[in-house]
């Protein structure tokens, strides 16, 4: 019962955050709505017994990624966008996106309900030791690849964000 309650509570917050992000005028407000959405998703993770991922979600998404976004938005000091009507091409692309999502949702919404919902057997709960066991044994190679990716992106970000420097004597 409590899981259902938290699911609908956090689920609606996450959706509201997403909708507001779609319609926001000011990027700062958009970032904050997205933070609400991320926190709600962390709450959903808690409802799924995955406290570890919930904590990491808050730390990395809400605490690091979105702070970085906010920092850049404040640094650029953007004006609020003037209202403008969408071009036909954008309306068409929005329609295509909505149709795609409708097609994805359709089997879930209208499929006949299975008579007996298979009861999930929680043999391996997602605690830190269990996740670590799988991550560092079975998925050691993807883990290493991701670490390399992080290194590369760090170097790339520093290179991109540096002011172009004049060479000496020119």
């Amino acid at each position: 019962m409590s899981e259902a309650l938290s699911f609908y509570f956090f689920g609606s917050i996450a959706l509201l955050g997403g909708v507001n992000l779609l319609f926001c005028k000011n990027p700062v407000h958009g970032a904050l709505f997205l933070v609400c959405s991320f926190l709600a998703i962390a709450g959903l993770f808690l409802g799924l017994n995955s406290g570890l991922l919930a904590a990491i979600q808050v730390m990395v998404y809400a605490g690091a990624i979105m702070v970085l976004f906010l920092f850049v938005i404040l640094l650029l000091n953007l004006e609020v966008e003037p209202h403008q009507w969408m071009s036909p091409a954008r309306v068409a692309s929005a329609l295509v996106a909505i149709t795609t999502i409708g097609l994805v949702l359709q089997p879930f919404l209208f499929a006949p309900k299975p008579a007996v919902e298979a009861e999930p057997s929680l043999v391996v709960p997602p605690t830190a030791p269990n996740v670590a066991e799988v991550l560092f044994r079975q998925y050691a190679l993807p883990f290493e690849v991701v670490s390399l990716l992080l290194l590369v992106s760090m170097v790339g970000a520093i290179h991109l964000a540096r002011r172009p420097q004049r060479t000496e004597g020119v």
Binding site: S50, L52, L53, I56, Q57, V60, Y61, A64, I65, L68, F69, P120, S121, L122, V123, V124, P126, N130, V131, E133, V134, L135, Q138, Y139, P142, F143, V146, S147, L149, L150, V152, S153, M154, G156, A157
Partner: peptide, 21 residues
């Protein structure tokens, strides 16, 4: 059954961090 889903989610978070930078 299994912790693979959590592992994949962790990897996605790491990739997202790299992408944002």
């Amino acid at each position: 059954v299994g912790a693979e889903g959590s592992v994949l989610a962790l990897l996605v978070i790491a990739v997202a961090a790299a992408e944002v930078a």
